[in-house]
Design a binder for these strands. Structure first.
Lengths: 288, 288
DNA sequence: ATTCATTAATGTAATATAAACATTAGTTCA
DNA sequence: TGAACTAATGTTTATATTACATTAATGAAT
């Protein structure tokens, strides 16, 4: 059984048309027809019901389509990761991080990695909160920096920095310091807040902040991108609660009012990873 | 890339010897050598470091060994399940159940399935508590009857019966009814108990029972097999707490003292399963 | 009805791949 | 130094896969 055959099957299962599939896969229709037949013969399972006119998945075919799609996709990432292990110091590692620390934690960390491994490629990506674990587990990313601890059987998590929440206001705003924040002054504000991620400790922290002031925030705008939130604050569309790290972006026109609410940053990685460079990078980051 | 090649790789990764592997796989050493080379070429990854004397996995090879082992194994079960879907009513479904209900719930349930699907094969297996979810998820079993609710995103769970705990004593034992059970009488007993499954509600229930009598049971023997426990009770090695269902096994020489502790039985299955017969069997069981 | 377009399967020949067998070239150990 | 071992490779043969052309069945259009 050939992985190529399974890929042909998956495209045919989508197209349900031998000619179109043959075109998409750059083989002739006859070759495709025979490959599918060979696959069916070897499996002992009829995958399609076909007459001279129509092609349709059988129940067993539908089942295998769903399973194979997932597996083949996972396989590709495994193979890519194996290549990166082989490339070692001249390969690529992929780091997911929150935008908030782009100008604070990241630059230092990256320059220390880069000077230790000058030929190493580093890809920086942002991954949605709910995808972080899956991406790490399936080798779509190698390291994830989060504001939540993620320790599970197969993911290790360690705190690497602490940060605080700040109220972010435009320069022209009356709020100058923490003393200006009361239930009364906050109640009259419009807030731009992050999209609430259930179960995220960062979300919880913001909830906690408002509860402390006994305020239900008037939040009419939500965004998961801090930089978008900052732009909106600057334009006077509301005020926001963001990690203090954003201050290092040095955006003109806004003011940060630091609050005593701590939000830790964690580094997350797969336990027992075989990537030797990745393991060394890990040591490098955690040792500091 | 061929699945057969990956299987060759996995055996070679275990044997680390081309001749032995060739023998085990029933091909010649030259064929094996070239298959591994082809695999390495197509992947773009060197899997083994080899000289004229030794064969050794590379880091990338070690990584792929671990991942492929899992994936290929999962694939085999998917293919087998696809064949069972195709076989339909003349295929096989695999049901895992606790031994306790072998003589009570199971006979009725099985005869109703068997009369509705006379050509259907049914395999009965026992699966350890901690493997139940994984076996169901990976198509190693099709239905699981448990004493715990298992509802997750991909597993449905529904109560199908209730059962009670009983104290099981040999015929010669002084305990005759619930009234004989007190902290004092229980403290002097030796108990044969199930192996404690952390987080299992059945385990919890037994704990709860002893707590109600303020007793820390003197349990020197543990077994996960109820039938073994019954044999031991019969021989006078101790008394036990078991589901009342075991009474239907009608083992002579022992006595059941029913307790007012309820332990529900749940049927668990994969949501969105494509097996048409399995879905019908499910309806059949749940409708009663 | 008849014709035409569509489409999956198949016969055939050319090509590519994979196998067994025999041999080679290092390596280890006595 | 030679024997045993072992992975790789050259060679030949068998098998599998491809492209091309054709077939057979179906449905739509006239």
């Amino acid at each position: 059984m050939n992985i190529q055959q399974i890929k042909y099957f998956l495209i045919l299962a989508q197209e349900l048309h031998f000619w179109k599939t043959a075109e998409r896969t750059h083989i002739t229709q006859s070759a495709l027809s025979r490959q599918i037949q060979a696959l069916e013969r070897e499996l002992g399972v009829q995958l399609f019901e076909r007459d001279k006119r129509n092609v349709k998945l059988t129940s067993a075919g539908q089942f295998l389509k769903e399973k194979w799609e997932v597996q083949i996709n996972e396989l590709e990432f495994f193979h890519e990761h194996a290549r990166q292990i082989q490339l070692g110091e001249s390969g690529t590692i992929i780091i997911a991080h929150p935008d908030s620390i782009s100008a604070s934690l990241m630059p230092d960390m990256l320059s220390s990695i880069a000077s230790a491994y000058p030929k190493l490629n580093i890809e920086l990506v942002q991954v949605r909160y709910e995808d972080q674990q899956e991406f790490l587990r399936n080798y779509k990313v190698d390291l994830v920096i989060t504001r939540d601890i993620n320790k599970t059987d197969d993911i290790s998590s360690e705190q690497i920095a602490t940060d605080y929440l700040s109220i972010v206001v435009p320069d022209s705003h009356p709020f100058q310091s923490v003393e200006d924040l009361t239930k009364e002054t906050l109640d009259s504000q419009k807030f731009i807040l992050p999209i609430k991620d259930e179960g995220s400790s960062y979300s919880d922290l913001i909830q906690q902040l408002f509860r402390a002031y006994n305020v239900v925030p008037n939040a009419y705008l939500h965004s998961e991108f801090g930089s978008a939130i900052i732009s909106l604050v600057k334009k006077g569309l509301g005020i926001a609660v963001l990690p203090t790290s954003y201050m290092w972006h040095e955006t003109p026109g806004i003011r940060f009012i630091a609050l005593p609410y701590q939000t830790d940053l964690f580094l997350n990685w797969r336990v027992n990873d075989h990537h030797p460079v990745l393991n060394n990078v890990l040591k490098l980051i955690l040792k500091r």
